[in-house]
């Protein structure tokens, strides 16, 4: 078992024996790991392995029932203040984008800076426009989500998450709902973000992206971490039988 006192020094996320059940179904069976500041971790595994549930526990969209999660020195618990603080420090990007369809692109991005961080509208908008420029869709700022493509929507979703100036970004299968020709525009934005030093946890099936960007790859199956390693070791010399099977199946496609 990891010694929490030692790992907290340079770790921004510490998970210790995290368990989660959906009714009787044991989804997470004791996840213990830690992520360093600036680390890019890719989490992969077959569907139903609990990988999405795991990263959703990190900003408490799912509530873990046993064990501890500490994000940037704040423990995730039933403490209302801690939950608020962590949600401001952790940005999240969803598979289905989840943009707010009744708000323009710009309003989507400025929403939480204005209402949660209490920024002035003008300030929030100029910051938002800068972010939209960074993800390359400043010219669509006044359109509604339904009027732009899926790839553009996902880039807006990234900008929206970045607007809170989070220390950590979670990506829950960000390219799975996209048409193939749009996947790269989103991955490019994520590469740029990775280069800027952001701490990133990415659940994805894009193995090319994983090999190129990740510092560490975590393979999950049946609610537990089966293997974690640097990409070259993970892909070229996997230790576990299940990992080997998964890699061979994934790379065939």
């Amino acid at each position: 078992m990891a010694d929490l006192e030692n790992t907290t020094d340079d770790s921004i996320i510490v998970c210790d024996d995290v368990h989660k059940w959906f009714d009787d179904f044991h989804v997470l069976k004791g996840i213990t790991t830690a992520f360093k500041k600036g680390e890019k971790a890719v989490i992969c595994g077959p569907s139903g392995s609990g990988k999405s549930t795991f990263i959703r526990t990190i900003n408490r969209l799912e509530i873990h029932q046993r064990g501890r999660i500490i994000v940037d020195g704040i423990e995730l618990s039933d403490d209302l203040r801690n939950i608020d603080r962590i949600r401001q420090e952790v940005g999240m990007v969803f598979q289905q984008f989840n943009l707010f369809p009744h708000l323009t692109v710009l309003q989507n991005v400025t929403l939480s800076p204005i209402w949660v961080k209490k920024l002035a509208k003008g300030e929030a908008e100029s910051e938002a426009l800068a972010l939209l420029e960074r993800v390359g869709i400043e010219e669509h700022a006044h359109k509604f989500p339904a009027q732009i493509s899926g790839g553009q929507q996902q880039r807006v979703a990234i900008a929206r998450a970045l607007a809170m100036q989070p220390k950590i970004m979670l990506f829950d299968e960000p390219t799975s709902a996209l048409d193939p020709e749009m996947i790269n525009e989103v991955l490019d934005v994520m590469r740029e973000l990775a280069a800027s030093g952001m701490t990133m946890l990415v659940v994805t099936h894009e193995m090319g992206f994983a090999r190129e960007v990740a510092d560490r790859i975590i393979f999950m199956d049946e609610g537990a971490i089966v293997e974690e390693a640097a990409p070259d070791i993970f892909f070229d010399n996997p230790q576990n039988e299940r990992t080997r099977l998964f890699i061979s199946q994934t790379l065939q496609h």
Binding site: D84, M92, Q96, F100, P101, W115
Partner: peptide
């Protein structure tokens, strides 16, 4: 969709703000 609630929570909006800014405007429309 559930994703609208989740996105609002992930952005740090609390229950009243989520309802007022995100859910009710869409639902009432």
């Amino acid at each position: 969709p559930k994703g609208q609630h989740e996105a609002a929570h992930a952005l740090g909006l609390n229950y009243p703000l989520t309802m007022l800014l995100i859910i009710l405007p869409q639902a009432l429309r």
